[in-house]
Every structure is written in C-alpha cells, then in structure tokens.
Design a protein around this nucleic acid. Structure first.
Length: 471
DNA sequence: TGAAATGTTGGGGCG
DNA sequence: ACGCCCCAACATTTC
C-alpha cells in the first residue's frame, strides 16, 4: 500500500495546505510528523508566547488530522543538523513512498531543507515541496531591468497584475485510508516536549486553531475591513485584522486571506488598503529572499552601517519596560508585554522613537520585538524596523520623524488606549494625558526621559552628516 | 503611513 | 476712510 509522509513546519493547518493536499491526492494513506527544536528556540530567544502558540495549534492540528485518518507524530531534536538522519530513519522504518513539505525561505531553514533533500536523494526517497508562504513565488517579480523591486508601489502593482492571472487555493483533502505505523523510539508525545510556560491570560487572548483563525478572517472581512482606512490607525479600536499570529505560524494561508478580501466585498478603497498590508508582507519576504544579507542583521542600505548608534542601557530598558514618560509609547510597550502583540501604528511610533529620538540601534528593537511578539516573523519584523530606522528598502525618509505626543493626540485623541494600559494616568484630562505636566503627573509615573526637540535635531544632524560623508 | 519653520493672506482692531 | 499692525489660518519649504 502506498504511503506518503507530510512534514509540518510553519503551516499548521489542513485547509489550503499544498503539501498535505498533494500527499492526500497521491497516496492511499498519509502520515504526518512535526519535529520540535527547543534548544534552537532557547538559543534564538524566540518569544515564549509564539512557541506556546505553536504547541496549542499543534494540538488542534493533531485533532483535525485525525478526522482525515492521518496521525501526527512528534519528534524532538537538538539542532537542525540531526534532522536529515531522523527523516531518513522515519522513512525507512515506516516504508514511506514520498516526502511532502511546504517551502520556507529563511537562510537556516533553507539550509536544513537542502540537507534533507540531499539525504533523500542518497537513499532514493522521492520528495515534493511547494510554494505556500507567499502569494507569488520568490524571484518571479522583476523590474524591466531584471532586478528585484526596491520600491513598494511598483512592486505591488505588478503583484496585483500577477494575482489576476494566477491564483489558487487548495481544497480541503478528503479523509485518507487509515494506517497505523509502528511507534519509533525517537518519537515523543506533544506534552513531552519542553514547551515554555505562558500565562493563562495570554493564552486566552489568542485562541488556537484553524477554525478560530478562519472565523477571525470572516468576521474581519464582513465588518471592520469596510472602515479599514479610518480605523486601522486607532489603537483603541479593533480596526485591524489581528490575523498576524495566525499568518506567521501558517494557521491560515496568505491565499485564504487574499481570497476572502476579494470575496467579501466589492472592490473599494478600504479593501485595497488592507490588501496593500498583505502586499507589504509579501514585499518584505521577497526582499529577504533577494537580499539575504538583511537576515544577517545587515542594514539594506549598507552605508547606514556608518551611523554611530548610541549605547544607553538605561534608556533602552525604559523603552522596553514602558517607562519613558511618553504615555503612548509606554502604553504600547506594555501592550506588547501583556498581549504578545502591538497595534501596527504603535509599532511604527515606538520604533521611530527608539531609532530616531533615542538613536539606539534598530537591531536592539528588532530583537526585543522578536522576543515578545506572538506574530514575530523575521522578514516582516526586520522590514518594519528598517523602514522606521530609514535603513531599508523604500524606507521612510530620515527627516520624517514621528512626534510621539502629536501622534498620540491624533490617533488616541481621548486617551482611551493609554488609559487602558496606564491606569495610573486614567484620571488625567483628554488634553493632559498625551504628556502629563509637572503639576498633574502622578508619582508612580516617570517624567519624560528625553527632550523631543533636542533629540529630533540630533537625529537629523546624524543622518545629514551621513549623507554628506557618503557623497 | 510628518513635523517644524517659514511665508502669505486677509480680517479686524485701532489710531 | 485709511494705513498700520497683529495674528490666526492656511500654504509652502525644509529637514
């Protein structure tokens, strides 16, 4: 009897999962595996909230797969280097006919998969892999000069054109033929893996499972998307999709998101803007593939390496803990710690404050985000940080510096968001809450750690100097 | 997907 | 009635 093996990684779903779909089409029976790497998670300081989210989603996935008569088996290894051996053993023991997986594009994962494919060739095991994480396959969008896009707008125009012609969502597979494989000694139970512990409130805030993700997508596309242009910038309103955690772990596919945005509403400006957000994700992922040096923490604009970022542990810590004395910044940073997530507008504001006003290296902010975000994605996070730091592709011009107080007045005019995360300021008036003065500032709230005007001028002069030095 | 500095205009107070 | 000044409101430029 023919047997297929599906290797799940960052695609923890059964709907629109190319590897799973094709495995089910090809074989009478299908078995699935997941290989956990807790040592790597620790080494890379991955966010506990994200790892815990994987655990919960794996449990959901296991149940959904059971309904398709597919068993999901768990393994644990110390490093990626052990994976080729492990997969070879599994395939031999279980007499697998073919291996299926969806591609990942980060350097370490590419290296891991290359080693696995080489091993498969050696032992004569066929394998199939599929594009999945992107709307458009890597390296297929090029300028007339044949180079990768460096600017978002032309990239997005071509991407939309491309999507008109080729767009595909895979149907959910039908149940396979049942098969029981012999348990291997390397195998473990989901709960045997050393998962990090995470508070109940955090777990409750981000329910796991494909059904929850689909429900979120559907409800977003029925209502909030219609006022997206207005509401997406207001942190006190649930105006954004809040799908990023599900997208980052593949609980939902980018194709499902795009399809839903087209299905649920007539084409209008609001939907177009949300689609652009999906295309920014696309743009940054393509950029990371085309310019792999950015994943090694090099700035995309290499000349910005000359910037002498300030080292100031006290200010960095104040930023991290939400104790800068600028209410919107502090509320945002506390939202990150409380929810494992931050509103997109706020991500820009706090990143701009760290990189421009404090003039602290964007890589430190990038790292802090990855350590705490449930939706932490290398490409999107790096792209966003380099946008704010003016070191990236199509980045914000260095002189366009957000004033955190002005942004607060504009996007949280009644201080509703600030009051929620900074109860010590709740009694202040709508006017005072954006920057308490000496008279009304409570004792337990810090005074502003810097003078915005002075810091702005300092950032301007550093970047202006860089421009002169380079020319 | 800014903000601050600088420039321009026009209405009203006032001598 | 007229010129002058003030300054808010808006526009443009600069970083």
């Amino acid at each position: 009897m023919s047997q297929q093996l599906v290797w799940f990684r960052n695609d923890l779903r059964i709907k629109d999962n190319p590897a799973l779909f094709h495995a089910c089409q090809a074989g009478q029976s299908v078995t699935a595996i997941y290989i956990a790497t807790p040592h790597q998670w620790k080494k890379h300081d991955d966010a506990s909230v994200k790892i815990d989210f994987w655990r919960r989603n794996l449990s959901e996935l296991q149940q959904s797969l059971t309904k398709l008569n597919i068993n999901l088996h768990f393994f644990e290894v110390n490093s990626y280097q052990q994976i080729p051996d492990l997969i070879a053993t599994i395939c031999q023991q279980w007499q697998i006919n073919q291996l299926y997986f969806n591609q990942e594009y980060q350097a370490n994962e590419q290296q891991r998969d290359k080693a696995v494919m080489e091993r498969c060739q050696k032992i004569g095991l066929p394998y199939q892999h599929y594009h999945d994480q992107l709307l458009i396959p890597p390296a297929s969008l090029r300028t007339k000069a044949g180079t990768p896009y460096k600017v978002f707008t032309p990239f997005s125009k071509l991407a939309r054109q491309h999507l008109l012609n080729s767009f595909h969502v895979h149907p959910t597979p039908n149940p396979c033929k049942k098969i029981a494989v012999e348990p291997l000694k390397q195998q473990c139970d989901l709960m045997d893996i050393s998962w990090p512990t995470v508070s109940k409130s955090l777990r409750d805030f981000w329910p796991a499972g494909e059904q929850k993700a689909m429900a979120q997508l559907t409800s977003f596309c029925q209502q909030p998307i219609r006022s997206y242009d207005n509401n997406r910038n207001l942190p006190a309103i649930a105006g954004t999709s809040r799908l990023s955690p599900y997208l980052a772990s593949g609980i939902i596919s980018i194709h499902q998101c795009w399809q839903a945005s087209e299905q649920f509403g007539e084409a209008n400006a609001d939907i177009h803007i949300w689609q652009n957000e999906l295309l920014w994700r696309e743009f940054y992922k393509h950029t990371l593939i085309d310019y792999p040096q950015v994943s090694k923490h090099k700035p995309w604009k290499i000349q910005t390496e000359l910037i002498e970022w300030r080292r100031d542990d006290e200010q960095l810590s104040a930023w991290q803990q939400g104790k800068t004395g600028f209410p919107l910044i502090d509320a945002a940073m506390r939202q990150l710690l409380a929810r494992g997530w931050m509103h997109n507008r706020l991500r820009m504001i706090v990143a701009m404050f760290l990189t421009k006003h404090l003039l602290i290296d964007w890589r430190l902010g990038e790292r802090w985000f990855m350590q705490h975000l449930i939706d932490g994605d290398l490409a999107a996070n790096n792209g966003g940080w380099q946008w704010c730091a003016s070191t990236g592709t199509d980045a914000v011009p260095y002189f366009r510096i957000f004033n955190p107080v002005t942004q607060s007045q504009r996007f949280d005019p009644t201080g509703t968001f600030i009051r929620h995360y900074l109860p010590e300021l709740a009694h202040l008036s709508d006017k005072d809450i954006h920057l308490p003065n000496v008279k009304n500032k409570p004792e337990n709230y810090p005074a502003a750690i810097v003078d915005l005007k002075v810091c702005r001028l300092r950032a301007l002069s550093v970047f202006k100097q860089l421009k002169q030095d380079v020319n």
